[in-house]
Simulated scan of single mutants.
Amino acid sequence: MDKIKVLVVDDSAFMRKMISDMINSQPDMEVLDTARDGLDAIKKINSLNPDVITLDVEMPNKNGLEVLREIKDSNVAVIMLSSLTSEGSSTTIEALRLGAFDFIQKPSGSISLDIDKVKEDLVEKIRYAKAHLRKKLKREKGY
């Protein structure tokens, strides 16, 4: 079985490390790489072709919403992982409108020392996102 290939995008090196460790601890997932901002993310999305991206909203150069606008036609599932993406917020609604698959709110702000609280939710949503992507691609190919 192929592993789910994930790109982790966050401007905090600590958050990139914590999120990557959570994902890499799963036998069916692997972090291909990380990106520190939106510009770095766009380059890596195009070169690495990940299945799923975890994407922060607030970042330098290009923010998460700008990245979503730019990749909206690519075959990648995006999970917003941010202190701004609480259910019902305008940022969350805009992210979903732009094609994000789902969102997870960081438990305690942009540098969440307790990010491990969302591990179960994160890995579950990555699996759902990959399954959704598979179905979408099959529909597009007429299977």
Results as ranks from 00 to 15, higher is better:
86 S>K: 14
91 T>Y: 05
117 K>A: 12
123 V>L: 08
84 L>N: 09
90 S>E: 14
140 E>K: 15
106 K>L: 06
139 R>M: 12
142 G>E: 03
106 K>R: 10
92 T>A: 09
124 E>I: 08
127 R>T: 15
141 K>T: 06
89 S>C: 01
105 Q>R: 14
123 V>N: 08
94 E>A: 03
102 D>T: 01
104 I>H: 07
100 A>D: 05
94 E>D: 07
98 L>E: 02
86 S>G: 05
90 S>V: 09
117 K>G: 00
133 L>H: 06
82 S>F: 12
134 R>D: 15
92 T>P: 00
83 S>I: 07
120 E>R: 12
108 S>E: 08
127 R>P: 09
93 I>A: 09
82 S>N: 12
90 S>A: 11
115 I>L: 11
101 F>A: 02
133 L>R: 10
103 F>P: 02
126 I>H: 04
142 G>R: 04
127 R>A: 13
98 L>C: 05
110 S>Y: 06
110 S>C: 01
87 E>N: 09
136 K>G: 00
107 P>V: 01
88 G>E: 02
110 S>A: 14
82 S>G: 12
86 S>Q: 13
109 G>R: 11
103 F>W: 13
125 K>I: 10
94 E>I: 00
132 H>E: 08
96 L>C: 03
113 L>Y: 12
110 S>I: 14
126 I>A: 03
139 R>P: 00
82 S>E: 11
84 L>D: 01
97 R>L: 01
88 G>A: 07
81 L>D: 03
115 I>W: 08
138 K>A: 13
113 L>C: 00
123 V>I: 15
123 V>F: 05
120 E>A: 12
96 L>P: 02
114 D>K: 09
130 K>V: 11
101 F>H: 11
95 A>N: 04
131 A>M: 13
136 K>E: 11
86 S>D: 11
99 G>P: 03
95 A>V: 05
121 D>G: 06
113 L>W: 10
125 K>W: 11
121 D>H: 12
82 S>I: 10
110 S>D: 13
92 T>Q: 05
134 R>H: 12
116 D>M: 08
117 K>E: 15
128 Y>I: 07
121 D>T: 15
124 E>V: 10
93 I>Y: 09
111 I>Y: 04
90 S>Q: 10
86 S>F: 14
130 K>S: 10
92 T>I: 03
133 L>F: 09
115 I>V: 15
87 E>V: 11
138 K>L: 14
90 S>P: 05
97 R>A: 10
131 A>R: 15
85 T>L: 13
133 L>I: 09
119 K>D: 04
81 L>M: 12
103 F>C: 04
128 Y>K: 15
